[in-house]
């Protein structure tokens, strides 16, 4: 079944068509909401809200944009909305020395990805949103400004701060690795 047939069936409430759309797009939807949320639980909630909003809005999907772009935008909006709510609550502080726990020996690519995710989770919310939307998702500063309800200039300055902070976090991880390595050698 092609995508427009799936969408038509999903609008009619067909569970397996909705499931197929979910299988196809849930990794991209989950990735963006989880990263913006900076936390697994909030990420899961955001992903569910995003899908509910998308399926509800499906009859309004006119096919002018690609479905992937359309659902991605809905996902970003619902994550940003959830963040606004969460930001009013107390932000958890994670010590910088917390190490990355790998379930199995990761490849160098997987380790790099883990480090990046780890550092993204530790950025302040405002910086994290902008660096994810710009550097990970490829939105322009104008688009980000509209999504966040701020000026494009604000998005830029947040991005530059975020890149610097991210770099510091990753450097701190490297320093920690080097220290651990030298300790191992000194035994």
């Amino acid at each position: 079944m092609n995508e427009s047939q799936l969408i038509r069936k999903a609008i009619q409430g067909d569970g397996s068509a909705i499931r197929s759309l979910y299988e196809r797009y849930s990794p991209r939807v989950y990735a963006v909401v989880r990263r913006i949320a900076g936390d697994d639980d909030l990420g899961n909630d955001c992903a569910q809200e995003a899908w509910i909003s998308a399926i509800r809005a499906l009859p309004k999907f006119r096919g002018e944009a690609r479905f992937s772009t359309w659902i991605h935008r809905i996902a970003v909006n619902s994550a940003l909305q959830a963040m606004r709510k969460a930001e009013s609550r107390q932000k958890r502080e994670v010590p910088i020395t917390e190490t990355i726990v790998a379930s199995e020996t990761p490849s160098s690519d997987a380790l790099l990805a883990q480090r990046l995710e780890w550092a993204l989770d530790r950025l302040p919310g405002g910086m994290r949103k902008v660096i994810i939307l710009h550097d990970v998702e490829g939105y322009t500063h104008d688009e980000i400004g509209k999504m966040l309800g701020t000026a494009a200039g604000t998005s830029k300055s947040q991005l530059f701060k975020a890149r610097g902070k991210m770099r510091e976090l990753l450097k701190s991880l490297n320093t920690q690795d080097n220290r651990e390595e030298s300790e191992t050698w000194s035994i």
Binding site: G15, I18, P27, A31, Q48, I52, L116
Partner: peptide, 24 residues
């Protein structure tokens, strides 16, 4: 950075909500 696969539990709870809201 690659996309992230959500936990399979996510679909189950989403499906329940979609059914409850009459979307499925």
């Amino acid at each position: 950075l690659a996309a992230l696969r959500p936990s399979p539990d996510n679909w189950e709870s989403l499906e329940t909500r979609l059914v409850n809201e009459g979307l499925i």
